[in-house]
Design a protein around this nucleic acid. Structure first.
Length: 858
RNA sequence: GCGAGAGUGGCGGAAUUGGCAGACGCACUGGACUUAGAAUCCAGCCCGCCUUGCGGUUAGGGGUUCAAGUCCCCUCUCUCGCACCA
């Protein structure tokens, strides 16, 4: 009997499909477990990253099922997005067709991997059945002021021809294509994520099941800082300039004012003055400079005096006002009070423009001289030159100065955030239409609920010049106003695709629910929240923050009953592989560089760094190839064995061979014993056993304990697999018992059955097959998880290590119940120990129960 | 620059609470089987040496401890995140 993965895998996959083995139904009698992996974008084919992500999830789902949980393990498609539209432009294929073809292909690939999804809950976000509810939620958000339209300067990617949210700009570049992001002023729809900012932040400390690192990233992104708004009256009497500061303790040292170059105040202050022209030129320059500045290594601090002054509210000093390139227009008020002695940026600026410096914080060990300082003093110290606050520790004075400002009416406490509202308008076709209508008479009017969904029209034309195809489709655009009945225009922007992925996990709970609001509260109350969410770290901010926000919005609409969508989060590492390059032909695919020679020209291949698998580096492995060559079980096993899930996984062909070999090894030992053990039941109870059988049985139960712990406590499948490998090795090590030795064979059968059941979540096809061959009627995956009998697992002897001064010198084998005193005595009487101790004095003997004896000697 | 994490054989990785460093696998070496190979099975496999044994070894240095890969301090390297946020 040979191991034939293809035949076995296809057989079981067909059975799972025909019998809907993994269909999930709400059952209040059973504890639920909602396991979710981030759903894929249907780009065409699954890649190794998917295989890894979904294998990890599948093991947990199958494991939990065997542990008696009612498991929900759904899958679907993040089906709106730009690649479909780009394909439409390039290949003249409609995005809907392209998407559906990709889905059907990838669905086959996922099924071929043997993932235990409830396919009846499959969802594709590009279907009107899905996004109609999103449109309903949009209208409700609009009514509550959580969705609003605003003319604003936005991040624009020329290549993608659309707007990007702040989160989607990575060091000045588009997160998707890496093009420089430019600024554009457009009317945009926003979701008021800032309305939930405090709750989003507060829960960062209430989600212990999330990786610290992700929470830190979210906290940083939200960027809460507490401080004061302080008013600096203008000396021309035209009101005051308000600034935000977290350092009101340095207020007495503020000697000049900085305003962001883009700030309207800049041109306003300069207007009509001799400097007006220069200022205009400066503003222009900075605006152009902006995106370069963000990406360059260091910035030249530049500024221009605006020939204007304001008054320091505490000292009464006249402060010159400068426009500066390094002040952010959209943080705080866009204006900053400058304290050159205690802020490095201000220090440099003051040096360049020769501006006044006053020390207000004095270090404990020396005195600062503003004339000779070479850098700002930013540490703690005692306040000086600070009127009534002199002598106080600056960090302690923060509250007192805030009180003082409020009492004097010169400022007030305030909190600033880095997080901005989420811009969700996209000038693209392949997305969910925003259900709004613009009427000249009535303004912005929501599409009435009864008219939903606003279906994305199919008959559009795509052009390489870009621009939204919706905007040029008259029959879509032209409509009548729901309020006044007059002619009106539809909104032609579509929603950011991150909106769809912000609630798909809720839709999975009632995927076919066709009644408003598209989510069945009863089903949601049963399944939500997601107990375990698994996906890539790249979504640490974007998707995970949006989904948290959206869930809170739905909660406040009464649609969902939970505060947070994901209780536990596992961020799996990337799949990496070394790159190969031909001096002539550039990067090579693995098969082109096999054998160290370029397949095209025969030149020696240069091996490069190990990097994340990507098409552009060509260091990719095709899952189809893996499945064809080794089978899905091997592919699954290698993904789990090569590294723990949260770490990057380095792909190795030999490693895959190794996994395949192990499965063959299990298969063969099984095959070898099959005839003999088939009629025999696994050993039960506690019969007396000969030494090697007793050892095997102990190993069996120890393995059960180890694998259970590794999966349950920390998802370390690599060590779980190696434990089963050890058990299989032990089986190989046992002398083949006589065919008539029923007791011995029953011990072997127990060991083999344990190995099979423990591997069921990991390599489900092979284990089902072996289980069936053994004569079981029930499927392995319907069995309950094996239980370790600790009486069998426990050793009756133990090895005690004997150390002298912490160095290993000898070993002792004693019964487990041997008393401490006797062990110590034996250790001291040990022949090797005696020879080492010759002439030395024993100072102390330490016994660590069941582990070691350490003799301290001089 | 700031913040977080990591650094263990030729390689991927193990060592869960301070207690035998290197589980398991890969690669390599040898043996068995075979006409031969593949496959398989068995064995060896951190480094050094005066090789039944001894010494060294968890990036480097110091410390705490009977005992440190693990705890503390310093230095180096790498990865990730943030990066003029006032």
């Amino acid at each position: 009997m040979k191991y034939n993965p293809t035949a076995i895998e296809e057989k079981w996959q067909k059975k799972w499909e025909d019998e809907k083995t993994f269909k999930a139904t709400e059952d209040p009698a059973k504890p639920k477990y909602y396991l979710l992996e981030m759903f894929p974008y249907p780009s065409g084919k699954i890649h190794i990253g998917h295989v890894r992500n979904y294998t990890i999830g599948d093991v947990v789902a199958r494991y939990k099922r065997m542990r008696g949980f009612n498991v929900l393990h759904p899958i679907g498609w993040d089906a709106f997005g730009m690649p479909a539209e780009n394909a439409a432009i390039e290949n003249k294929i409609h995005p809907a067709k392209w998407t559906h073809e990709n889905i059907s292909h990838m669905k086959k690939q996922l099924k071929r991997m043997g993932f235990s999804y409830d396919w009846d809950r499959e969802v594709a976000t590009c279907e009107a059945d899905y996004y109609r509810w999103e449109q309903l939620f949009f209208i409700w958000m609009f009514e509550k002021g959580l969705a609003y339209k605003k003319r604003s300067s936005v991040n624009f990617c020329v290549k993608c021809d659309t707007v990007l949210a702040n989160e989607q700009v990575e060091s000045g570049l588009c997160w998707r294509c890496g093009t420089d992001v430019t600024e554009k002023v457009l009317d945009q729809w926003f979701f008021k994520i800032t309305a939930y900012i405090d709750e989003l932040l507060a829960y960062c400390d209430k989600l212990p099941g999330w990786p610290e690192r992700v929470m830190t990233m979210q906290k940083n992104w939200i960027g809460k800082s507490t401080g004061c708004l302080v008013d600096f009256p203008r000396d021309d009497g035209q009101g005051a300039i308000s600034v935000f500061t977290t350092r009101q303790d340095t207020l007495f040292g503020a000697t000049f004012m900085l305003v962001a170059a883009e700030h309207p105040l800049v041109t306003q202050l300069a207007s009509g003055k001799p400097c007006e022209k220069d200022v205009a030129a400066f503003v222009d320059k900075v605006k152009k400079q902006d995106k370069l500045m963000r990406t360059s290594e260091y910035y030249e601090k530049e500024g221009l005096f605006l020939d204007a002054y304001c008054i320091n509210p505490l000292t009464g000093w006249k402060m010159p006002i400068y426009a500066a390139n390094f002040v952010l227009a959209d943080y705080g008020t866009g204006c900053v009070m400058a304290v050159p002695t205690h802020d490095q940026r201000d220090f440099e600026f003051a040096q360049k423009f020769n501006l006044q410096r006053v020390v207000v914080i004095s270090p404990k060990d020396r005195t600062l001289d503003p004339a000779t300082m070479t850098e700002a003093y930013v540490d703690e110290g005692v306040l000086v030159n600070s009127g009534p606050f002199n002598g106080m520790i600056n960090t302690k004075a923060l509250e007192d100065i805030a009180d003082y400002l409020e009492a004097e009416g010169k400022g007030k406490r305030t909190i600033q955030y880095r997080l901005r509202d989420w811009g969700i308008s996209r000038q693209r076709y392949w997305g969910a239409p925003i259900p709004m209508i613009n009427c000249d008479q009535c303004g912005i009017v929501a599409v009435p609920e009864k008219d939903l969904p606003v279906v994305l029209p199919e008959n559009v034309t795509f052009s390489p010049e870009g621009g939204s195809p919706l905007a040029s489709l008259a029959e879509f655009v032209n409509t009548s106003c729901p309020k006044c009945g007059g002619s009106a225009r539809r909104e032609t922007d579509t929603m950011d695709t991150f909106v769809e992925s912000s609630w798909y996990f809720e839709r999975y709970c009632s995927p076919k629910h066709g009644i408003k609001p598209g989510l069945d509260r009863k089903a949601l109350d049963y399944w939500m929240p997601v107990d375990q969410y698994i996906g890539g770290i790249e979504h640490a901010i974007l998707h995970l923050l949006y989904a948290r926000f959206y869930t809170k919005v739905l909660r406040d609409m009464g649609v969902v009953g939970v505060d947070e969508p994901f209780t536990n989060l596992l961020t799996q590492g990337m799949v990496c592989k070394e790159t190969m390059k031909c001096p002539e032909h550039g990067y090579l695919f693995p098969e082109q560089g096999a054998g160290g020679k370029c397949a095209i020209c025969g030149k020696d291949v240069i091996l490069g760094k190990t990097e994340k698998m990507s098409k552009s580096l060509k260091n990719v492995i095709d899952p189809d190839f893996l499945v064809k060559t080794y089978g899905a079980d091997t592919a699954r096993m290698f993904c789990l064995f090569a590294a723990p899930p949260e770490k990057d996984l380095e792909w190795s062909e030999q490693g895959v061979d190794g996994s395949f070999r192990f499965l063959g090894r299990l298969w063969r030992i099984f095959d070898e014993y099959l005839e003999d053990i088939k009629p025999i039941a696994p050993v039960s109870g506690h019969p007396a056993l000969a030494d090697d059988l007793k050892t095997l049985r102990r190993k069996t139960h120890q393995t059960i304990a180890k694998v259970t712990q590794d999966i349950e406590d920390r998802f370390h499948f690599n060590t779980a697999i190696s434990a089963v490998m050890e058990l299989v090795n032990a089986l190989y090590g046992v002398k083949r018992p006589d065919q008539t030795d029923q007791l011995a064979l029953s011990v072997i059968r127990e060991a083999l059955e344990a190995a099979i059941l423990l591997l069921t979540p990991i390599v489900p096809h092979m284990t089902e097959e072996l289980w069936q061959i053994l004569g079981h009627e029930k499927c392995a995956s319907d069995m309950s998880w094996p239980v370790c009998d600790s009486a069998i697992a426990s050793e009756d002897e133990m090895t005690i290590v004997i150390q002298i001064n912490g160095k290993l010198r000898s070993r002792l084998t004693v019964p487990v119940d041997e008393p401490e005193e006797k062990i110590k005595a034996c250790a001291l009487a040990d022949e090797k120990i005696l020879s080492f101790l010759a002439g030395a004095n024993v100072m102390k003997v330490i016994y660590v129960p069941k582990k070691l004896v350490n003799i301290v000697a001089k």
